[in-house]
Amino acid sequence: MEKGVYLRGVSKKFVTRQQETVDALSAVDLAVEPGEFISLLGPSGCGKSTLLKIVAGLLPPSGGSAWLDGHEIVEPSDSVSFVFQKPTLLRWRSIQDNVLLPLDVAGSRPKEAVEYAKELLALVKLSDFANAYPSELSGGMQQRAAIARSLVSHPDVLLMDEPFGALDEFTRETLNEEFIELWQREPKTVLFVTHSIAESVFMSDRIAVMGARPGRIIDEITVPFPRPRGAELRKSKEFFDLVARIRETFDLASESSAREVVAP
């Protein structure tokens, strides 16, 4: 069963070494309904990764609250998995042992869980590499293994922090398509951080567009394209139109913030 994520007035302040206070996030409200795929889209420095870490329970918010179903998030939860920008595979463990890491940390490897891990490795096309070590795999393959690891504990919510951001565009598009296919087989609530407009349009049900200084949500856009979505969508006029519209949103936001700076 999927769970929803609800943010109410979440803010985050950091104190720099020069003792200045920086507003990384200012009063973010967002509702991610169960089973929904939402992208947090924005330029670097807009606090989207900070927001994701707050939802993960890895960072406490400075103000407001984050909720997972009916429970306020104060620490990492069993039902939430995190996918990092780097694959973050432990280099001394084989791929299969990396995928099984969440179970080892939880305390045991039940037989059906090991079976499920093998199934996931097959889904991400890494069956032949189960006994290989991370250094023997390409970046795209490593990230696939990291995704398999994030799914092995049957999470309800998946938090993804620019998971394909370090890959070249072709690999990224392939992994986008593969991941969407996987997500349709194993439905989860997904909160997906990206700075690629095209990627967010291709993947999501809804896009929360974020602006910087202070980090906040400046627009929420529903993506109307039906699923399943294939590679052809990327070439359609509607796709380009939506990408252009979102780009417009960013341009307007940066103009208005430029005006703010100019105004006395």
Partner: peptide
């Protein structure tokens, strides 16, 4: 990130020591 991974898996101090 590996430390954050362990924390997100709810690994306590001993398990962080053992697995990471």
């Amino acid at each position: 990130d590996e430390l954050d991974l362990m924390r997100s898996l709810r690994a306590g101090w001993r398990k962080q020591l053992r697995y990471l």
